[in-house]
């Protein structure tokens, strides 16, 4: 599904990604871990198409299509979803109105009519139940005055509504208490299928107890330096990242 080869990218002339390779197949869950400043969020933003980065070499393909040619909204239309680490506030725009606009814009890009209101409402009801979201929450302004947990739950709600092919969860676990973490993880697990893929970016192993990855990658200094199965996350949790640095030096 996603194929990244030798990706080098910089921001403000500072090289962040230094030849990154990653392949994610449909049906897989990948976790990307690594110390602060390793380039985890940069990778997420670049896949989503944020404009701040300069890509100096390498390719990003989604199902064989070169993503770098596409605007962020076009990537979204092609099934890329990013759960933001810091979701933005949009005052006066309700959660419902926002997701309705997002869905209909995506449908429009595919040459489809707007989703009928009845169908939309039904879907909203189902997905909000899945994530244990109160109906009152849906009429609040997007992310305005939301707690950290509400923001993240709202991100996963949007993911559930948009049914992406590739979902990238950028530190979705930060700011979540244990109950919220379980609800969010449960939601992600239910949305998982043979046909979609998930990349979980996280500092901690905690989330991976609930969303069990097929692969764990360690991103360090702009490169993936180690790949393993779920047990690697446990090892990282126990030993920290220093041993990886040492391994690299040798």
């Amino acid at each position: 599904m996603l194929k990244i080869e030798n990706l080098q990218a910089s921001i403000d002339n500072k090289l962040i990604l230094k030849g990154l390779n990653l392949e994610v197949k449909a049906g897989e869950v990948h976790a990307i871990m690594g110390p602060n400043g390793a380039g985890k969020s940069t990778l997420a933003n670049i896949i989503a198409g944020k404009d701040d980065y300069e890509i100096s070499s390498g390719t990003i393909e989604l199902n064989g299509e070169d993503l770098s040619e596409l605007a962020p909204e076009e990537r979204a239309h092609n099934g890329v979803f990013l759960s933001f680490q810091y979701p933005v506030e949009i005052p006066g725009v309700s959660v419902t109105n926002f997701i309705k606009t997002a869905i209909n814009q995506t449908r429009k890009a595919k040459g489809l009519e707007d989703m009928p209101a009845k169908e939309m409402l039904k879907m909203i009801r189902e997905k909000s139940e899945l994530l244990e979201i109160d109906r009152k929450f849906l009429s609040r302004s997007l992310n305005e005055g939301f707690s950290g947990g509400e923001k993240k739950r709202n991100e996963i709600f949007q993911m559930a509504m948009l049914e992406p092919k590739l979902a990238i969860l950028d530190e979705t676990d930060s700011g979540l208490d244990i109950d919220a973490l379980r609800i969010v993880a449960n939601g992600v697990n239910k949305l998982k299928s043979k046909d979609n893929a998930v990349i979980v970016i996280t500092h901690y192993q905690r989330l991976l107890e609930y969303i069990v990855p097929d692969f764990v990658h360690v991103l360090y200094d702009g490169k993936i330096v180690k790949t393993g199965d779920a047990s690697l996350a446990l090892e990282l949790e126990a030993k920290g990242y220093d041993w990886i640095k040492e391994e690299l030096v040798q």
Binding site: D51, R75, L82
Partner: peptide, 15 residues
Amino acid sequence: GEEQLFYCNQRGIDT
């Protein structure tokens, strides 16, 4: 802000 626009873009909403 650019952040607001990017957020919307990422959800499939053009600028």
